[in-house]
Design a protein around this nucleic acid. Structure first.
Lengths: 224, 224
DNA sequence: TTCTGTGAAATAGTTCACAGCG
DNA sequence: CGCTGTGAACTATTTCACAGAA
């Protein structure tokens, strides 16, 4: 049953399922049908069943899925039972905020090093950690067993710093810079960008407003 | 040429194209081939040509696309030439940070009102704006011509507050709460969630590490 | 000749619908 | 009998490959 490849579409839904399962577990439900779980997750039940099946997660016919079991299996698939030490590159406003943000450590990504290209910042502390120079990246990564880089530098420097992260042996990059990175195929990158989200929201919002403008809808709906 | 429906997949790439075009424009390029633009954006050239064609954006055979023209057209498609006033619901740590963040206004989403369910917060100021009670939402929305809600409340309250935003006539919600919202079909919602991003990164990072563990790769690559 | 615009093929993803297990 | 697991149909998206415009 397992063995099939897990599709990107499936992976993108796993965090949603996880959330639904946590909610179900905390409400005391021991089992849940695919219909229930799908409803909570906002997907089609068949999609959910296929997703779980592709991970080798099985339910019981006539009953449903065991909440605790599925919760555990998805957590394991997502690697949430392991810690992956992180370096943050770029200690400006954003980097500083990220360095203090407890969510990384809480989710299995303890921040173990901070680097910046600006010598003036080197030696300063942010919380527990001292800022090191970008040139020390290789040693820090090797010494601290770091495998994930958080990129919080300006867009123009993003590719350069990404190259250095890759050269230092990082396996994954969480990219907060508004730039498309070119990296070797074995490195995985995710971009996190509020501007992108706002632009996509804007697209659909505009269309929707245009559609409503035809009908005589109330709302304070005209753009300013 | 235009008239076709713009697919979700296309929309998700428009912000990336926009970035590439801005880079091209600032580097002085007047035109760019689909190959060049696709390279900068990390997509296949045929995909890029199809995307632009679906928006009615045409190039010149033998030459390529006019950078300024495409930049303008994509901006317009994304609604970036208009302002959409915003209310932030939930003025905790995150809501406060978002209220001060200049990026919303810079991207056409000026923050015009702040609301919270906690009476103790009402009347306090964050920057220019006073915090109002959630109960005043309808009046604020109507009076200020607000059409977009930013949801920054705890997960347990997210659905309730979303319902109130919808009832107040909001058309789009940017959801920072870790919850799947159920809303009427005419309302559009985008979820922004660092936890989700980290979990997806974790999935691929774990797989990659497992793959590399087979080969005798150096790295500080063992999980902690 | 270069590079777009697009049929057509290929691939990916979703959903229906139902056999059959518990 | 209820609900999973999945073949098969369907829909969406990507990519190739090339006719033809500039």
């Amino acid at each position: 049953m397992a063995s099939e490849q897990v599709s990107a579409a499936t992976v993108s839904r796993l965090p949603v399922y996880l959330r639904s399962l946590v909610d179900l577990a905390s409400s005391g439900a021991a089992t849940a049908s695919s219909e229930r779980l799908a409803e909570l997750s906002g997907v089609n039940p068949a999609t959910l069943r296929r997703d779980l099946a592709s991970l080798g997660i099985t339910g019981t016919r006539g009953v449903g899925y065991d909440v605790t079991y599925v919760l555990y299996e998805i957590s394991r698939e997502l690697g949430l039972n392991q810690d992956w030490p992180v370096v943050i590159a770029g200690i400006g406003n954003l980097g500083r905020a990220l360095a203090r943000y407890p969510g990384f450590a809480e989710r299995g990504f303890p921040v173990r090093a901070l680097v910046d290209a600006d010598p003036a910042l080197v030696g300063q502390r942010v919380g527990e950690l001292a800022i090191h120079h970008l040139d020390d990246l290789d040693q820090l990564v090797a010494r601290l067993g770091i495998t994930v880089g958080v990129l919080a530098v300006p867009a123009v420097e993003a590719q350069d710093v990404a190259d250095r992260l890759v050269a230092a042996g990082i396996g994954s990059i969480l990219n907060f810079a508004p730039a498309v990175l070119v990296v070797p195929p074995h490195v995985n990158v995710r971009r996190v960008d509020l501007a992108t989200e706002l632009q996509i929201l804007s697209f659909y919002h505009q269309r929707q407003s245009a559609a409503l403008a035809g009908t005589g809808v109330p709302l304070g709906s005209e753009p300013t």
